[in-house]
Amino acid sequence: MDFTFSEDQLLFQESVRDFLVNEITPEKIRELWETDSGRSPELWSQLAELGLTGITVPEDFGGLGMHMLDFVLLAQECGYVALPAPLVHTAMVAVPLIVNSANDNLQQTWLPKIASGEAVVMVGLEQNIFVEDAHIADLLILEKAGALYAVEPGNATLRANESVDLSRKLFVVEFDEAKADKIAEGDAAQSLIDAALNGGALGVAAEALGLAQRMVDISVQYTSERKQFGVAIGTFQAVKHHMANIAYRLEYAKAPAARAAYAIDHGQDKIAMAVSHVKLAASEVANLAAKNCIQVHGAMGYTWEVDLHIYMKRAWAYASTWGDAAFHKQRVADYVLANDAKLGAGNTF
């Protein structure tokens, strides 16, 4: 029993955090809002140079060969900066799907290009109706009627749907099966679909933890500087307790994220419950952070100018993506209310 991250994992997290915090400033995010694609090829190249686009790509295909557990810490950092690039999707959804597809052609064609940053592959599932970043994808992997298809973007029609978070690029994608490559059907497809959904849900859950932390940090700083009644508003207990209420729930959502990543890496039978647990807990704390942090900013928090909304809107969006609350609660219920459920002390590991 060793429930700690390794020195290497923590160092990697730190270096990625340093890079992201320096590069992905709020100004940079606002600049990208003004562009057509909302995406920066330069940023993607930088991420590739750091090995991040290929982090879960096996070494044989030019990646770092790491796993969910390695990436779950980095996903928190991606959330911390509200990264406007599909890195979490790549590492936790697209790459694992291709790796697990046992489709040589798909692997050989795409994995090296993902690792090098030359290609972006995005996945669309029926449970997650809007396909993220389809407009910059070089390949789409889409679910339809229980099967999975590899679709060239030229053979698909994209309908852009604007999100409250201008950094999120969402599309409804239509395609003709006749012009697509069926890569899996039946049980094989279902297990890839389940895994993709779990990877995506864990990814946004981990990002939500980072978002909550960012909103707290912004608000602690703001309330330490802003004065009313002659003192910093952060000295008022009502303001302190707004922050403390986020902090203690955040503290108890981190270990479930690590456990869910571990469960996926080790193919444990409680993956669905573990992922849904952290998805619910992380969405809840990120949305509490949004609510309390706007409150302690007063009118400032209600403006476009103050950066808080960059993180707040992402948190709102993540609450219902990769499975909404109803979906994840049902999966927890399936586990907890099963006749043979293993509940109680001694059944966690």
């Binding site: 029993m1 060793d2 700690t4 108890y252 270990a255 690590a258 609660k329 927890v332 219920a333 966690t348």
Partner: peptide, 28 residues
């Protein structure tokens, strides 16, 4: 009621996981 029962399970689980994590950190 159903929702609260599920939450109880999840929060007890979160408390357990976090305590184990803290214990492991202290042992190290």
């Amino acid at each position: 009621n159903r929702e609260a029962v599920l939450r109880a399970y999840m929060d007890a689980e979160a408390y357990t996981l976090t305590t184990y994590q803290t214990a492991c950190r202290l042992i190290k």
